[in-house]
């Protein structure tokens, strides 16, 4: 796809720039579409635009590296993503480990009554860590 978007005489860097611009533009349109839908009262249309953009952007991100010989992403990109993901999970883990058990204990003792938003956030974080554990197990065995 990006081979055909890019003139043959251009450097691979040009194809990479086109790739990132296309993906970021699609995601930007999706987010703007969602916000515009919220502002104008057309939430369903905004949601459709957002979901369409998210799916198309994700699809291009997944498929484009397989459809071209140009290195759109390489090993350093992968390492940067891995390090950023590890840092994010590390921060979430430290925050979660220091807060979630305390909230459980205080709630069980009747000292606090967490609002639904906090309960939802705890469930989300717990689900994220569970998903990470499953993904780690799968990756370890491959």
């Amino acid at each position: 796809m990006f081979d055909t978007l890019t003139p043959k005489t251009d450097e691979p860097g040009q194809a990479r720039r086109v790739y990132y611009r296309v993906v970021y533009a699609i995601l930007a349109i999706a987010i703007v579409g969602l916000l515009a839908g919220l502002v104008t009262g057309r939430e369903v249309l905004g949601t459709i635009i957002y979901c369409g953009g998210a799916w198309i952007g994700s699809g291009i991100t997944f498929l484009a590296p397989k459809l071209t010989d140009v290195p759109l992403q390489d090993e350093r990109d992968t390492e940067l993503y891995n390090r950023a993901s590890g840092l994010t999970l590390g921060v979430l883990f430290v925050l979660g480990l220091s807060v979630i058990p305390a909230i459980y204990v205080l709630e069980a003792a009747g000292r606090i009554e967490p609002p639904p938003e906090v309960t939802g956030a705890i469930l989300l974080a717990s689900g994220l860590f569970l998903l990470w554990g499953v993904a780690y197990g799968i990756v370890k065995r491959r």
Partner: peptide, 8 residues
């Protein structure tokens, strides 16, 4: 970079 298949 092109010769070894990575980015600049």
């Amino acid at each position: 970079a092109e010769a070894v298949g990575v980015t600049r």
